[in-house]
Write a protein that binds this DNA or RNA. Structure first.
Length: 122
DNA sequence: CGTATGACGAGCC
DNA sequence: AGGCTCGCCATAC
């Protein structure tokens, strides 16, 4: 392989790969995706990468929310409704404040908190 | 090429 | 406990 430049996939491609690794019914945050993609601290770049996605993309962009567990799109935006519907369609529940419980749905799972496993025991 | 902006995050009060 | 501001850097014009 040609040394020097990007021996690996492009940054966006790495971001898309990380996002694609999120299973259905789980969510991740921009910051975590950034860290997993090799650019810790650059959460905004992840948001930008998803913004660049095309409508026909198979990347589960809707499984990415901000560190507060909220959809980062404008609540009155069309994208917000789409993302929320897709998440609820996968079983992700929203708080009365439109917040997702990251302790239950965050991917990769966190220890010390019960997960939303299919067994329904928590 | 410089200014403005944005699908974020952490700190400050 | 929560709203506001700054910093980060690629993209748009």
């Amino acid at each position: 392989m040609p040394s020097g430049s990007h021996t690996q996939a492009s940054l966006y491609e790495r971001i898309y790969r990380q996002v694609s690794s999120i299973p259905a019914g789980r969510v991740s945050t921009y910051g975590r995706i950034a860290g997993a993609a090799g650019i810790p601290g650059h959460a905004r770049q992840v948001g930008y990468a998803l913004h660049r996605l095309k409508p026909g993309s198979e990347v589960p962009w809707h499984r990415v929310v901000n560190a507060a567990g909220m959809i980062s799109l404008a609540p009155a935006s069309h994208g917000y409704t789409i993302q929320r519907q897709l998440l609820e369609s996968e079983g992700v529940r929203f708080d009365h404040r439109n917040v997702i419980c990251l302790a239950r749905y965050l991917w990769p799972p966190v220890d010390g908190c019960h997960r939303a496993e299919s067994s329904g025991r928590g």
